[in-house]
Design a binder for these strands. Structure first.
Lengths: 341, 341
DNA sequence: ACGACAATTAGAAACGTTTCCAAGAATATG
DNA sequence: CATATTCTTGGAAACGTTTCTAATTGTCGT
């Protein structure tokens, strides 16, 4: 066994061994051009010999930054969030930053705590999908943030950069598609109006009926939250009605899971008895008996853009807050069909 | 607008305002019992007044730890990894640690880099699902690790704690289930023998035939990697054979996605023409026309256990390396049926 | 070979916290 | 009431790096 237990070499050890000062070692590391080649050689040799690696704790301390960005999200098991994370991470990593994931389960308390902990020296910036868009405490924290931040698909009245999706237009298109297929009793199941995606989708849904001067099926709209449980409950309720809808829009990838569960349980045939439209690509949406008609968007681009926005701020940009919105597109699958007579 | 731009208060400011020494402030924070209530009051008041929060960079530096554990994984978008992460994170968070996620895309190079970066002051310990179980460079890094670590479902000849799954037994049971249903031409699609899950599943598969003294369908075994692309290619090849198998075990949740894609493309009816067995619960496995028969395991428990193992080490335990293995269980779904004649 | 100027280097201070030690205050003991 | 003992506290050192200033070395033209 090697003499393993000795503590790691420091920059001082390197200085001693290579016969230069600590300052020079530091510069050999961070600005090699500013040190004479001969010196650089000696330093590099010593570094090699001692297997030295700078201690990032000390670096963070001294340069007052961590080269780390917090990524706050309610559930990383949601493939959408995972994809956003990966895209943002790749972009950031390319620029020398890494992402620090905090999974909050969506509770206001945990979100506030996450923000608190991240801004006090754990991260240089924040990318967040906040669930408590209306929570006073969370809002206050966001307002007093010490580090730059970017919001994902959230809309608060603060000067904060945000990357958004045009859910409203996407929803209008999806609804119109169903109307053109002859559907009138169309149900919408989505998140509550307290967070942006819910709000916007409801708006878009309404808009489709307004454009056609048709009655808006108020009673078929179920907007509460984005969980699969809610999707299941809402769909079950709808399926038990005597005047069951002929189409359902499961607006949210978790919601879709619940809706399909309900459909399976009630033995409803898709699309013969019921047309379905989903949001966002997932394995399930792609494969469920056949591909489901869905409102798609480019998640990778959203993640990348959030990263870029934040990087600008980290480089000191003082522009007014930007809000970048991306479009969706309707992808036709086998789950939407003309209404049966 | 408030005078927002002033820099955050330090422990020195708190000391000055409350009229005590920095040492006392520090102890008020970390060991409130050791300071007189009156003093504590003054300090707390000052902290409140200044909105002081200790700078974690400085804390990490001084106490030479970060209360952070690295979680290294090839793809966080894999729901299995996400679930493991969440479970480990919850356990760790309860004990004051947080998890630092590093997504490596499975490349040996990135895995090595991740380990390097994490152990030099970014994390106090590591939880890893390494893909390059055989890569020399990775192995050397693991051997020389400065921080305690736990491997997930990987098996290397080093003194390292590990949390494993008994894939072999699970696979034997699944295969026997198919054999009992009359299947003989059973295909196995799984990861390569270079990483543990592949190895073990192959072993278990073989064992089922050995027990029955039946010929092992060597030509129906496709073991390469766990990607959905491989699943698709392997399944497509198998489906095109004249002596097409009557059952397939898609051993890996990504593989299942590819296999189902191939099945859909070849218009094969499940389970009438083909029985399918999957591994691990996913939305897809639960909902695909109906629930798929699968080899399940308790992912949460695996994540929790990894965290606990690591916590022990972080508290200084010097026991010999532990390897904890969890069982699987076969959950019957609608995708496995007697072989058609 | 000399001075002027640029390039390189040494050395010390600083970042904000924790922790150690010794001194001072409070309390208990006789 | 004096002294021993325990609690609190102040002050300074330390963690390992970066960065600043000043000093030294090197280069160049004449």
């Amino acid at each position: 066994m090697r003499s393993d237990k000795q503590k790691p070499a420091t920059i001082r050890d390197v200085a001693r061994v290579s016969g230069v000062s600590v300052g020079t070692v530091s510069r050999s590391l961070n600005a090699p051009d500013s040190v004479r080649p001969a010196t650089l050689g000696k330093v590099r040799a010593a570094i090699q010999a001692l297997d030295f690696q700078p201690d990032s704790r000390a670096q963070n301390m001294r340069r007052r930054s961590t080269l780390t960005v917090g990524f706050v999200v309610d559930d990383i098991a949601n493939p959408l969030h995972a994809a956003t994370f990966k895209a943002a991470d790749a972009e950031m990593r390319g620029r020398g930053f890494s992402l620090y994931l905090v999974n909050t389960s969506g509770k206001a308390r945990e979100e506030a705590d996450a923000i608190d902990m991240l801004q006090h020296g754990r991260a240089d910036g924040l990318i967040m999908t906040i669930n408590s868009e209306q929570d006073v405490r969370t809002l206050r924290r966001l307002a007093e943030l010490r580090v730059p931040s970017v919001l994902l698909d959230r809309d608060i009245s603060l000067e904060v950069d945000a990357v958004l999706t045009d859910h409203a237009l996407g929803m209008t298109q999806a609804t119109e598609h169903l109307i053109e297929l002859g559907h009138r009793r169309i149900a919408l199941i989505t998140g509550g109006p307290d967070i942006r995606p819910g709000r916007e989708r409801i708006r878009g849904f309404r808009e489709a009926f307004r454009r056609r001067r048709m009655d808006f099926p108020e009673d078929l709209m179920q907007a509460q939250n984005l969980s699969s449980d809610f999707g299941f409950r809402a769909a079950s309720t709808l399926l038990q009605r005597p005047d069951r809808p002929t189409a359902m829009i499961a607006a949210g990838n978790r919601i879709l899971v619940g809706v399909l569960r309900a459909i399976q349980q009630h033995n409803v045939s898709v699309p013969r008895e019921m047309s379905i439209i989903a949001c966002d690509q997932t394995d399930l949406a792609r494969l469920y008996p056949g591909p489901i008609t869905l409102i798609d968007r480019d998640i990778e681009e959203i993640g990348r853009t959030a990263a870029q926005l934040l990087l600008e701020r980290l480089e000191g940009s003082e522009k007014p807050a930007q809000r970048i919105s991306f479009p969706t597109r309707l992808i036709l699958g086998g789950s939407s069909a003309p209404v049966p007579r």
